[in-house]
């Protein structure tokens, strides 16, 4: 999965050496407020671990400091700036304001603002069949240089739409925030795999065997373009397909409303099929 790397601000609620303890109720309120605001918080109660391992982003250390900031917090500061703020007598809402001001000073990325809804591939189950790539109309999926399916544009995914996971023949696509299993990451049972309603014939949804249609498209192109297009019939077929999508795949109405036109879908499908056909091709072999 590829997405822009954004530096985020990490918060350390420090109650180690040199900082007085915070009452339990206040600690809980502070952490809940900061978490709901999108910040990651490390609660340090004992010991000297004030910089979370792996963190190379700005950190703000909050504490009821007795004197100067503790040495332990300063020792690992080379990778990123560490800010210290005394929170003696400060309540949870005011803590949020303090962190907000540090966030602005540090120039870190804004937390939250987007419900993180995107497919996660269970590569323990995925067979690289590319059905998801072919099916998704919003270019969420792509193919890696080593011909492996991947989630390429997670932010393109339509919130609350789990349709691609329902067409996956191996139940290999997860949406961790989905309401039901196994799409939410619950264990996959045999009945899930064989459940017919989870295996939607995507070609039927698009009005026929798209692979066969694409294979014969070039042969029939002259005839097809010579025929008068029946727009009304095409629109009716599209409407039926969309209704079927909504019913069978639990697709939100707003996603259907954002669907591309039929011509755009066909063009996109051609590109996706071409990519899918190249995907499983062994290295060094020209695609047919």
């Amino acid at each position: 999965m590829s997405a822009p790397l954004v530096r985020s601000l990490r918060v350390v609620l420090y109650e180690g050496a040199g900082s007085r303890s915070i009452p339990d109720a206040d600690r809980f309120a502070m952490m809940a407020t900061l978490l709901q605001g999108g910040y990651a918080v490390t609660s340090v109660r004992t010991g000297s671990r004030t910089v979370p391992e792996g963190a190379r982003t700005p950190i703000v250390v909050l504490g009821r400091f007795e004197n100067a900031p503790p040495r332990e917090a300063e020792s690992d500061s080379a990778a990123a700036p560490i800010y210290f703020r005394d929170i003696e007598g400060v309540d949870a809402p005011a803590i949020a304001s303090i962190v907000e001001s540090v966030h602005a000073e540090a120039g870190t990325g804004r937390p939250g603002g987007w419900k993180p809804w995107f497919p996660v591939i269970d590569f323990g189950r995925c067979t690289n069949c590319m059905q998801c790539l072919t099916f998704c109309l919003f270019d969420v999926y792509g193919v890696s240089p080593d011909k492996q399916i991947r989630v390429q544009n997670p932010s393109n995914c339509k919130t609350d739409c789990p349709a691609c996971s329902r067409v996956c023949p191996e139940v290999a696509i997860l949406f961790p925030k989905y309401k039901m299993g196994p799409i939410n990451g619950d264990e996959v049972r045999e009945e899930d795999i064989h459940r017919e309603k989870m295996k939607v014939d995507i070609s039927a949804l698009l009005g026929g065997d798209i692979y066969a249609a694409l294979r014969t498209r070039s042969q029939e192109s002259k005839q097809r373009f010579a025929r008068e297009r029946d727009d009304k019939r095409a629109l009716e077929e599209r409407r039926k397909c969309l209704n079927k999508l909504q019913e069978q795949l639990d697709v939100p109405p707003e996603v259907l409303a954002a669907l591309p036109s039929l011509d755009q879908i066909r063009a996109r499908t051609e590109r996706a099929v071409a990519a899918a056909m190249q995907g499983p091709t062994p290295a060094g072999t020209e695609p047919q």
Binding site: V6, A40, P52, G112, P116
Partner: peptide
């Protein structure tokens, strides 16, 4: 999920 989406190095 949000951290994974932006590949937070943490």
């Amino acid at each position: 999920c949000e951290m994974a989406a932006r590949r937070d190095p943490w």
